[in-house]
Simulated scan of single mutants.
Amino acid sequence: MISRDQLLAAPKVLLHDHLDGGLRPETIAELASDIGHTLPRSDAEELGAWFTESADSGSLERYLETFDHTVAVMQNAAAITRVASECVQDLAADGVVYAEIRYAPEQHLNGGLTLEQVVDAVREGFEQGEALAGDKIVVRQLLTAMRHQARSMEIAELAIAYRDAGVAGFDIAGAEAGFPPTRHLDAFEYLQRENAHFTIHAGEAFGLPSIWQAIQWCGADRLGHGVRIIDDITGADNAALELAAIDLDKVELGRLAAYVRDSRIPLEMCPSSNLQTGAADSIAHHPIGLLAALKFRVTVNTDNRLMSGTSLTREFALLAEAFDYGLADIRWFTINAMKSAFLPFEERLAIINNTIKPWYANALS
């Protein structure tokens, strides 16, 4: 078994983490007090527990309701910068060496900020956090548009305007049912013309049509979650078996699943979050085990560290216990993620060759 100290020390890469889903409870309490926002709990420890319990409902819609409070305290530049800086510091303390943090700029305008001022505030916070972490971590922004709104083109243009100023790519998020990614096709076509990177939340609370549209209609570089790709795989009872009981030789991939695997389309999988939203009933039965065994381009992520009460170290610890993973497996997931990052090739290669591979070579020797 891998020790927690080993997992904590291991260099890790995080591709799917929401800025407004990772605040420190004490920071929420302080910022709420400053603006007079009423919280469900006043004590920071009790507040943290409330977020986790409220998110642990099995419903994506109710899960998203917890963001009302975190977004409410992120409506001025100083608060956004503080949250962004603390995010980077917390990730660095967890051994993360590269991260892409996503958020929706359009949700932070109630205090009078412009979209550009929101992005600038996050950039300032990330730069502060990197410096305070001793430059042991590199962090980039992903700008998210909300599926149920009509500002995706505006946010896509914002991502292009800032792509040389800390923004690595674009994303859409929010409830999948009733809001297919094709509603934002103009934004995705614009991003493709601009040679830009983007990921799409797909296959989390909705099935294969969402994944198919994200890839074949919209041209997604990565899939946010993508857990429902398991529905296009037969011979494994939809992974609702212990992985050891599955005969991989009898597993068959449908056309879409085969395309995703053959094309090496990265899956931004978030195990603990998926349990809360009902996409899986346990870590041991999570499709990530089968998808990794079938050599899909699987990456491990946190989604919302506050709501899931988690960290990337904890996610790997849960997977290691459920699937008997060793350090070599964690290395595979980590290199998968770094290969899939929206960072220039030479910068990705430098982190792999200078940071990730040397640590694991030493740990595995």
Results as ranks from 00 to 15, higher is better:
residue 296 F to E: 07
residue 189 E to H: 13
residue 282 S to L: 03
residue 195 N to Q: 12
residue 363 A to H: 15
residue 54 S to Y: 15
residue 243 L to Y: 13
residue 103 Y to W: 06
residue 77 A to N: 06
residue 340 S to M: 04
residue 314 R to E: 14
residue 213 Q to R: 02
residue 292 A to G: 07
residue 2 I to V: 15
residue 189 E to G: 04
residue 145 A to R: 01
residue 115 L to E: 12
residue 237 D to W: 01
residue 179 F to V: 00
residue 149 Q to R: 14
residue 116 E to M: 03
residue 204 E to Y: 03
residue 241 L to R: 13
residue 289 G to F: 02
residue 176 E to Q: 12
residue 351 I to M: 13
residue 323 F to R: 05
residue 265 I to W: 00
residue 195 N to A: 13
residue 302 T to Y: 01
residue 220 A to P: 12
residue 292 A to V: 02
residue 202 A to V: 11
residue 271 P to M: 03
residue 26 E to I: 12
residue 39 L to H: 10
residue 214 A to T: 12
residue 341 A to R: 01
residue 61 E to I: 11
residue 269 M to T: 07
residue 264 R to A: 09
residue 44 A to G: 06
residue 26 E to V: 13
residue 273 S to V: 09
residue 127 E to Y: 05
residue 36 G to P: 04
residue 229 I to V: 11
residue 306 L to W: 07
residue 78 A to T: 12
residue 164 D to E: 09
residue 119 V to C: 08
residue 3 S to W: 04
residue 285 H to G: 00
residue 112 G to F: 03
residue 312 L to Q: 05
residue 272 S to R: 13
residue 186 D to S: 15
residue 156 A to R: 11
residue 324 D to A: 09
residue 237 D to S: 09
residue 73 V to R: 03
residue 226 G to D: 03
residue 238 N to S: 10
residue 284 A to H: 00
residue 338 M to G: 04
residue 254 G to T: 08
residue 151 R to H: 14
residue 365 S to M: 04
residue 83 V to W: 09
residue 285 H to D: 00
residue 88 V to I: 06
residue 250 K to I: 09
residue 64 L to M: 10
residue 352 I to M: 10
residue 269 M to N: 01
residue 91 L to F: 14
residue 350 A to T: 02
residue 230 I to L: 08
residue 26 E to R: 15
residue 173 A to W: 00
residue 35 I to S: 12
residue 364 L to A: 13
residue 132 L to S: 07
residue 216 Q to T: 08
residue 266 P to Q: 06
residue 358 P to F: 02
residue 301 N to F: 09
residue 246 I to G: 03
residue 63 Y to K: 03
residue 5 D to E: 14
residue 331 R to E: 12
residue 51 F to E: 10
residue 186 D to W: 07
residue 188 F to S: 05
residue 24 R to F: 09
residue 150 A to Q: 13
residue 241 L to K: 09
residue 159 A to Q: 09
residue 326 G to V: 12
residue 307 M to V: 14
residue 355 T to D: 01
residue 295 K to R: 14
residue 40 P to T: 10
residue 141 Q to H: 03
residue 318 L to A: 08
residue 362 N to H: 05
residue 130 E to L: 09
residue 241 L to P: 00
residue 309 G to Q: 00
residue 70 T to R: 14
residue 53 E to A: 15
residue 200 I to Y: 14
residue 44 A to R: 08
residue 236 A to E: 04
residue 185 L to I: 15
residue 7 L to Q: 10
residue 360 Y to P: 00
residue 270 C to N: 13
residue 288 I to W: 00
residue 226 G to P: 04
residue 159 A to W: 05
residue 359 W to M: 10
residue 131 A to D: 14
residue 144 T to P: 12
residue 26 E to K: 15
residue 178 G to R: 08
residue 193 R to M: 10
residue 183 R to Y: 03
residue 338 M to W: 02
residue 58 G to L: 11
residue 145 A to S: 08
residue 176 E to Y: 07
residue 296 F to W: 06
residue 307 M to K: 12
residue 199 T to L: 13
residue 114 T to K: 04
residue 233 I to C: 04
residue 197 H to I: 06
residue 5 D to W: 02
residue 175 A to H: 10
residue 306 L to D: 11
